[in-house]
Simulated assay, not measured.
Amino acid sequence: MTSVAVVIACHSEERWDLLLGAIASARAQQPAEVIVVVDHNPALRDRLRTAAAGVTVLANRYTRGVSGTRNTGAEHAATDLVAFLDDDIVAAPGWLQRLIVVFGDPAVVGAGSAIRPNWLRARPRWFPDEFLWAVGGSYPGLPTSTAPVRNVWSAGMVVRRDAFRAAGGFRTEFGKVGDRMKPEDTELCLRMAAAGGRWMFVPEAVIQHAVPAGRDDLRHFVRRCWQEGRGKVAMSALKSGEGLTSERDYARRVLPRAVAREMAAAARGRGADHLRRAGAILFGAGLAGLGAATELVASRRH
């Protein structure tokens, strides 16, 4: 029987209630072990060791950042598979079992979940579905049934432990820490696929990602789109795989159709929100392009 450990990365006591919810949802999947790794926060580590009975609590062995935090948990795991959750994620019933199924194919090295945003306040009416990735959610254009993909997101990701370790895990110098937002999960997927593996997207496996106040406004949207452009160019510079073909295809195929749809709805008198969403798509795409250009210029200076 395939064994699985669930690794939950955390760093701040500000998310305490969300973290307890993530732990409870992970334990409900009945994995072999739930491992919570704390990113350089001794007070949070000690509090968890008291409050989270039956859970392994570790400190990040690497420099600060989510990449080293996840690597620490994966290195501790002694299971066939390792699943990753974040401290603001709740896994739906059956999440883990639905993901495990695809590992019956020995060519599969990893799998990912559908991510539904859990808006803790009302979702802004101007916010387009095509930019749900800006709040950590799945978006139109992804497969609607289980299918191979270039990459999945680390929140809700499951990997073969041996393949993950052979690839060296997440790059500890590349990822999310502080205000830096670089796609360490995409970069990992490209490296593992380049070694001969296959990634699967399993939309029936669902997790919910909390979207609190401060991540549901225009300021976050602007920052996240700009950072996405910078991060993807930085990832491409690492030459980890096929580069940015998926991003270019999304920009050329999905976004123009979305703008046309929203503009047509506005023209038919269905409300100004459609016009606002069309504007948000164009604005967000422009910001990502500006971020990409900024990173290109910065990289050439070095």
Rank of each mutant, 00 (worst) to 15 (best):
S236L: 04
G94A: 11
M263V: 13
A53Y: 08
V206F: 06
A166V: 09
C225T: 05
R98Q: 15
P203C: 02
M1Q: 03
R161W: 10
G169Y: 00
A24V: 03
R70V: 08
P124T: 07
R45A: 14
R270T: 05
D179T: 12
T144A: 11
E14S: 13
L18P: 03
V222K: 13
L85Y: 04
D185Y: 06
E262R: 03
V37S: 01
D88I: 04
L142S: 02
S236E: 15
E130F: 02
T146H: 01
R257W: 03
R276A: 14
T56N: 10
V90S: 15
M235S: 12
G279W: 08
L190Y: 06
S145P: 03
Y139Q: 10
T172R: 03
F174W: 11
D105I: 00
S25N: 04
V211S: 00
Q97T: 13
A92W: 08
V82L: 12
R27N: 06
F131Y: 13
G137A: 01
V90W: 15
D46W: 04
R252F: 11
G291M: 01
D17Q: 15
D105T: 01
R224Y: 12
H274T: 10
A28R: 04
V297C: 10
A258K: 11
R270S: 12
V4Q: 03
T56I: 08
A77R: 02
A51V: 11
S154R: 13
T50G: 09
L244H: 09
T56A: 14
W126G: 06
D273Q: 12
E228S: 14
V202E: 08
V108L: 02
E187S: 12
R268W: 06
R277E: 09
A213L: 12
R191T: 00
N118E: 12
R301V: 13
S246Y: 11
A205D: 08
A5D: 15
N71Y: 02
F201D: 04
T172W: 02
T72M: 00
N60W: 01
A266T: 09
G169A: 01
L296I: 12
P203W: 01
C189M: 05
C225P: 04
D216S: 15
N60F: 01
W199A: 05
I115E: 11
I115Q: 14
M192V: 13
A167W: 00
F170T: 00
R171H: 08
L20H: 15
A91D: 03
